[in-house]
Design a protein around this nucleic acid. Structure first.
Length: 466
RNA sequence: GCUCCCUUCGUCUAGAGGCCCAGGACAUAGCCCUCUCAAGGCUGUAACACGGGUUCGAAUCCCGUAGGGAGCGCCA
């Protein structure tokens, strides 16, 4: 049997890490089982659904490379189908009209709560009731009253619910529109979903959905309820941390594979392995190995993983990411060799592509701004003299490579009877404007002789005035 | 309140009765490497929520307790 999974977000809020992880698990499982992955947008709540949220879902999934095999489907386009199923259930007596008003039900609920009972629909209209003038009825599902529903959950194991605990839920509002729990059931049935992988906040909805599926004569899917993701402080994911649009992570310079890697390890493990390629994730993932407990989002580890992926990636594949980040700060270059060289030189000193772009500004600007503190420390006194000699050495160099540059600087250091640091720091400050950069030979090689000498001259000129 | 779920280092986790006086990773501290910053290497600090059972033996099984979460909507 072909495995069919689905990701069914509702566009009422931003697609955040919690949603992305459920999507990832569903996608991974489908890939692993050589099945199909469906994307379905649950937009039946027309009041709260926004186009912006739909866009984030679509763009986010595309950015992450979680490509659906089917969809996106939109529930708002399936209303006819839902209406037909409701009519069918009404005819079969599996559902009935309820003429209770909201006010009446609120009153009942208030009483029940006061008596410390579980608030539930009392079943007033369950056995037939004459239409009441002025009241547009809702449609309720006739839930079994005895017995139990047993969920064989892939992550939680056996969970059973007494039907007596369940009441008759509304499947169609008085305006005729279907409700969430009902649409899910019809969609999963129609789309042949075999594995429902979703947040464990839905575990309590599962028995009702199973009862409806049973009433419709559908085959029950296998369920897997994955735990939620908490903020770094262990509290519920909030706007402050993590509950931002996934696209935010793109802006901040995270690699899709790194984010996915981080997310897959949050709640799942494969021995001691921390870094996974997409292929490794697919090969190793099994929904049965997912943990039951919620886990806290840890930004530091995401940062670490992102750098791990940057360091392991083929430099050429990072070029588009670097350029995108450079453009954000008003810089750009189409010099492939230079960009790859920068990536090689910078990736072990930047945790995100954004940080890499920021640290690489000096490669692209015309004039570097020299940090006064760095100048005071490395360009004053002997630093200035050293710089003059470095300039002469470099100007006289035959070929301009990191190897030849390195040799020249070491020679000079030896002549001066000093360490390489004494020579490298003044050059570094003159050329990059700061006391921090990749190895000086690599930096100069990438920068080119012309710009190197020009910057040394500029620094010397500025230092002469002090 | 009722029903359901969850509980190993600060954090993510390994662990499916003896291999565990609990392993790995992030973070953190120290050391090494070193032209800066990193990256890397080594070392350290740090956890089985609690209480009862079962067993020769429990992080692992059972029962409670405590704490956390979810659901109980004409929201999804």
């Amino acid at each position: 049997m072909t495995v069919v999974t689905r990701f069914a977000p509702s566009p009422t809020g931003m697609l955040h890490l919690g949603g992305v992880r459920t999507a990832l698990y569903s996608w991974l499982y489908a890939r692993r089982m050589r099945g199909r992955f469906i994307l379905r947008v649950e937009d039946t709540d027309r009041e709260r659904s926004t186009e912006e949220a739909v866009r984030v879902i679509l763009d986010g999934m595309a950015w992450l490379g979680l490509t659906p095999d089917e969809g996106p489907y939109f529930q708002t386009q399936r209303f006819d189908r839902y209406r037909a199923v409701i009519a069918q259930m009404l005819a079969a007596g599996q559902a009935y009209h309820c003429y209770c008003t909201k006010e009446e039900l609120d009153a009942v609920r208030a009483e029940q709560t006061a008596r410390k009972e579980k608030p539930r629909y009392p079943g007033t209209c369950r056995n037939g009731r004459a239409p009441r003038p002025g009241v547009q009825p809702v449609v309720r599902f006739r839930n079994p009253t005895d017995g139990a529903v047993v969920v064989q959950d892939l992550v939680h194991g056996t969970v059973s619910f007494q039907n007596a605990e369940l009441d008759d839920l509304i499947i169609a509002r008085s305006d005729g529109t279907p409700t969430y729990n009902f649409c899910v059931v019809v969609d999963d049935m129609d789309m042949g979903v075999t594995h429902v992988i979703r947040g464990d906040d839905h575990l309590n909805n599962t028995p009702r959905q199973m009862n409806m599926l049973l009433a419709l004569g559908a085959t029950l899917p296998t369920y897997a309820h994955v735990p939620m993701i908490l903020g770094p402080d262990g509290a519920k994911l909030s706007k402050r941390h993590g509950a931002v649009s996934v696209l935010q992570y793109e802006e901040e310079g995270y690699l899709p594979d790194a984010l996915l890697n981080y997310l897959v390890r949050l709640g799942w493990a494969h021995g001691d392995q921390e870094v996974f390629t997409r292929e490794e994730m697919i090969a190793a993932f099994d929904i049965k190995d997912v943990n039951k407990a919620a886990s806290a989002f840890n930004p530091e580890k995401l940062l670490w993983l992102n750098q791990q992926h940057m360091m392991r990636a083929e430099p050429a594949t990072l070029v588009p990411h670097l350029r995108a980040q450079l453009r954000r700060i008003g810089l750009d270059s189409d010099d492939q060799a230079l960009l790859e060289g920068i990536i090689l030189a910078q990736r072990e000193r930047a945790k995100t592509m954004k940080e890499m772009a920021l640290n690489s500004r000096f490669f692209f600007v015309d004039h570097v701004q020299i940090d006064p503190k760095a100048a005071a420390k490395h360009l004053a006194g002997t630093g200035k003299e050293t710089l003059v000699r470095v300039r002469a050495q470099l100007a006289a160099l035959g070929e301009w490579t990191s190897g030849s540059i390195h040799a020249a600087l070491e020679d000079l250091a030896a002549t001066l009877g000093a360490g390489l640091g004494k020579v490298a720091q003044p050059v570094r400050v003159a050329v990059t404007g700061t006391a921090v950069s990749p190895p000086i030979d690599v930096t100069l090689a990438l920068l080119g002789r012309g710009r190197t000498l020009a910057r040394i001259d500029a620094a010397l000129g500025a230092a002469a005035g002090t």
